[in-house]
Design a protein around this nucleic acid. Structure first.
Lengths: 222, 222
DNA sequence: TCTATATAACTGACTGGACAGTTAGTTGTC
DNA sequence: GACAACTAACTGTCCAGTCAGTTATATAGA
C-alpha cells in the first residue's frame, strides 16, 4: 500500500501527467486487493494515488472502468507469460506442465495480484463482460496450453488415457483453491510457502496421470 | 425464485407467523443466490417473501444477520451429512471417500445452495467471523473427515505415502472449482452433468494416491 | 529576464440517487 | 377491545459522479 506523495510538500504536479493513469491503477490495485470492489471508494483510490477523486475522473470515466482497466493491465501480462512458456515445451510435456505450475506460483507471488481472481469471482455477476474477458484471456488460454501438453504426454505414452481437459483442471484447481483459501481465511494460512506447495501439488497430479509404472514414484512404499 | 404469495389476494397473514423466519431465509436464499450479498436489497427479500421490508426487521435485526442466519441454517445441515457419512466408512476408505465426493455433488445440486460458497468467498473480508464460522463448520470438518479416511487408506497400504491434508485438498478443490466456475461463467457450462464429473474427478484422484499397481485402472492403455 | 496570457492539471464542495434501518399508524385475529 | 402482525412513508447516511473554480506550467512578447 504505497501512497504516492508529492515529495514532502509543495510542488503539486511536477510528476509527468502521462504516468497518471498507471499510477491510478497501481493505487487501485492496492485498495481493491484489500477491500474488494464494492467496498472500495473512489476517494480511497484517489488518496492512495495522491490525487483528488475528481482527478481520477479525468482519466477514467467510472469506477467500473478503473477496475476493468486494472484487470486488463495485470492479466494481459500474466497471460502472455503462460502461453509462450507452454509453447516452448511441447517436446517435454512433464517439464512444460511443471513450468506452467511454477510460473503460476511466481505470478501470484504479489498478493495484490492474487486478489484479482477472487474479486473477479465475486463480481462476475455484476460484470459479466469482465468475467467473459477473464475467461477468454486467462482461463481458456491456460487451459488450452495445459490440454495440449497433456495430450502430447498421452500421445507419447507418458500419461494414462485421461480426459485432458479434466486433467488440466485437476492441476489448476488446487492452485486456485490455495490462492482463494489464503485470502478468505488469512488466519488459517499456516503451512508451507506457495513454492513448496506447488511442487507437492504437481507431484500428486503427475502420479494421477502417469502411465502405469509411475515414472515419479518417490513416496511409494512397496 | 418462488415468491411467496398470500393465496391470490386478501387474507394477509393467515400463514403461521412462527414460520416467518424460515420463509424469510428461503426468500433470502433465492435473492442472494442471484445477486450476491451487496447487490441484494432488503426490499427484494421482502418482496420475495411476500412481506414488507419493515416486517423482516421484526425477525432479524439487520441484513447482515439475515445472511448469517441463512448460512448457518443451510450449512449446518450440509455439514452434518458429511461427517456422519465419513465416520460410517472408516473400514473402507475408498468407499468412504467416494461417498463424500458424491454427497458433495448432491448437496450442491440445488444451485441456490451452491451459490453460498461463492458469496462467502466474496464477502469473507466484510464478514471475517462468518468466514471463520464457515471454515470451522464446513471446511475443517470435511477436511478432517477426508484426512482420516486418507490416513486409514495409507495405513492399510491402499494409498501411497502422501501428505493427507494435501491429498484431501486435491480431491476437494476440483469440486469447489467446478461449482465456482459454473456460477461465474454460466455461458461456459457445457460438458457433463455434475454427477458424471464427480466420478471422473474421483477416479483421477484415486489414481493419484493409489499404491503402485493402481487398483482402479480403467482408462489405462498398456 | 521578467511579466502576461493561455491552457493543462487538479481540487473542494456539492448533488442526486440508492438503500439500510425506523416509526407512527393500519389491518386482521381472538 | 386488546394484541399481534404487518406496512407506508420517512430519515439519515453513504458515495459515485459533477462542476465551478484554483494552481501550476508553457509559451510569447517585451
Amino acid at each position: 500500500m504505497n501512497v504516492i506523495e508529492p515529495s514532502a510538500n509543495q510542488p503539486k504536479w511536477t510528476r509527468k501527467p502521462e504516468a497518471r493513469p498507471d499510477e491510478v491503477l497501481e493505487a487501485a490495485l492496492d485498495v481493491f486487493a484489500v477491500n474488494g470492489f464494492a467496498a472500495t471508494r473512489m476517494d480511497d483510490i484517489a488518496k492512495a494515488a495522491g490525487l483528488s477523486k475528481a482527478a481520477i475522473y479525468l482519466y477514467f470515466p467510472s469506477k467500473d472502468d478503473v477496475f476493468k482497466a486494472l484487470v486488463e493491465q495485470r492479466i494481459g501480462v500474466l497471460q502472455a507469460h503462460f502461453d509462450t512458456a507452454a509453447k516452448d515445451q511441447k517436446r517435454d510435456p512433464v517439464a512444460g506442465l511443471r513450468l506452467v505450475a511454477r510460473m503460476w506460483a511466481t505470478s501470484f507471488h504479489d498478493l495484490r495480484v492474487a486478489a484479482l481472481p477472487r474479486i473477479i469471482l465475486a463480481e462476475a455477476l455484476r460484470f459479466p463482460e469482465l468475467a467473459e474477458f477473464y475467461h477468454r484471456t486467462v482461463i481458456e488460454r491456460t487451459q488450452g496450453a495445459l490440454v495440449e501438453l497433456i495430450q502430447a504426454g498421452i500421445d507419447a505414452g507418458l500419461f494414462r488415457q485421461v480426459e485432458p481437459l479434466l486433467a488440466a483442471r485437476a492441476l489448476v484447481s488446487p492452485l486456485v483453491f490455495e490462492i482463494l483459501r489464503r485470502q478468505a481465511f488469512p488466519s488459517h494460512t499456516s503451512g508451507p510457502p506457495m513454492e513448496t506447495l506447488v511442487e507437492a501439488i504437481f507431484d500428486l497430479f503427475l502420479n494421477g496421470i502417469a502411465a502405469a509404472p509411475a515414472p515419479n514414484d518417490r513416496g511409494v512404499k512397496p
